[in-house]
Structures are given as structure tokens and as C-alpha cells.
Amino acid sequence: MKVLVAVKRVVDYNVKVRVAADHSGVDLTNVKMAMNPFCEIAVEEAVRLKEKGVATEIIAVAVGPKEAQEQIRTALALGADRGILVEAADVQPLGVAKLLKAIVDEEKPELVILGKQAIDGDNNQTGQMLAALAGMGQGTFASEVNVADGSVKVTREIDGGLQTVDLKLPAVVTTDLRLNEPRYASLPNIMKAKKKPLDIKAPGDYGVDVTPLVKTVKVEPPAERQAGIKVADVAELVDKLKNEAKVI
């Protein structure tokens, strides 16, 4: 079966972003970019399915700027077979989901794996929206995925613990942190990835309008916390909590 994975180019998770001086957004000049960590987990899961003989082909898709080719190449180095980049800037989740839906219609994968959230927008929407548009079942926040007999069992990390659902294929899965530990790409595989096919498309090729529906008015830094004090020992700590902060 074919597996489609979505990979998003985002600010590296180690970077503490700064709000731009004019409050139009965050300052991303010279900031390190990387594949969204949840998408790395998605790629890893797809590669494991291929290693198990469940998946036959893995297609990595990104919607983003020209530079997002780097993230597709990373996915190809990790084991994806080919890539598709839909070149467009700042597409909101509904737009991304519509593009992915159009690609799903063309490629007919049995499983689509996405990250549960992108660590820049923190939206946690795209997979669910794609599932809705494609009329598929969804296994979000997955910590375990088992494909068998035309269905997929997904164990999900929920607020109260874990829930397992059974979805008819084709289906959408979004990854949580505990699904797997992604591997690193080896140098020979990085070289090989350069020769794998990568199609560049535009939203218009799929007839999808990606005009943003939600406008960002401004972006501000969060309220700063006042620096606190160091206490000498547990007795002083308890005294402060009881008599100064009055929280215990």
C-alpha cells in the first residue's frame, strides 16, 4: 500500500523566537529551519511500515517555500521514495488540507501520516481537516499504529490516558511524541536522496485557492515574568509560600 506523509518546514525546536519589532510577526531572518519534529515521527513510522512489508511506496509532501525542498530531501534520505512540493507561502491549515486532499485523490494512498501539530503555528488542525475533506477516519495523537486486514488500529494519547480506535482504510493518522524515535539519515542515504524524484507544483495545479481566511493583526511578546529570588533551604521556601505568596 502507498503511504503519504506530510512534512512541514518550521523553525528548529531549539530556537527561541523573537517577535519582530514592528509586531507584524516573528523575526525569522537567519533562524535555523528544520523539519517539524512531529513530521519526523510521521516519516519514521512510514519507513517502519515499509520495512515491515506493509507499505510499498512512501510519498513525502510539503506545502511551503522553495526551501522546503530541503525537508523533502531529508524525508527522502530517511526512506521516502519520492517527494511533492507545493510551492506557496504561509498557507493556513484548511488550505494545506485542501492541497493534501487533491494529492490524495491523485495518488490514492491507503494511509496518510501527519504530525499532530506544527511547532510554529501550534494549530493541531491539518490532519483532522484532511480526514474530513476526504471522508476518512482519523487516528490523532497516535502512540501506536497497527495496520491489518484493511483497517488500522491506532492507540491515541488522550487527556485521561490512552484510547484505541479502529479505522477503515484509507485513513489519516497524526503522530504524538511516543509513537517512535526517529532515526538519523546516514550520509550514503543523504547522497542517494538527491537522485530521488521531487515534483514541484503550485496550488493552481490542483485548483485550490489558498488565500488566508484568518488575518494576523499583530504579534506580540508574552507578558514577562518578574525574576524571583533564591531561597536558602526548604524551611525558607515553605515560609515564603505560607506567609508571602500565601499559596499553601
Partner: peptide
């Protein structure tokens, strides 16, 4: 957004 390092005001 960005792990709470920025607060966006958005309009729909």
C-alpha cells in the same frame, strides 16, 4: 504561537 513565545492577534 511558537510555544507561547509570541501571542498573535488574529481576525476572521
Amino acid at each position: 504561537i511558537y510555544a507561547g513565545n509570541a501571542i498573535a492577534t488574529v481576525e476572521s
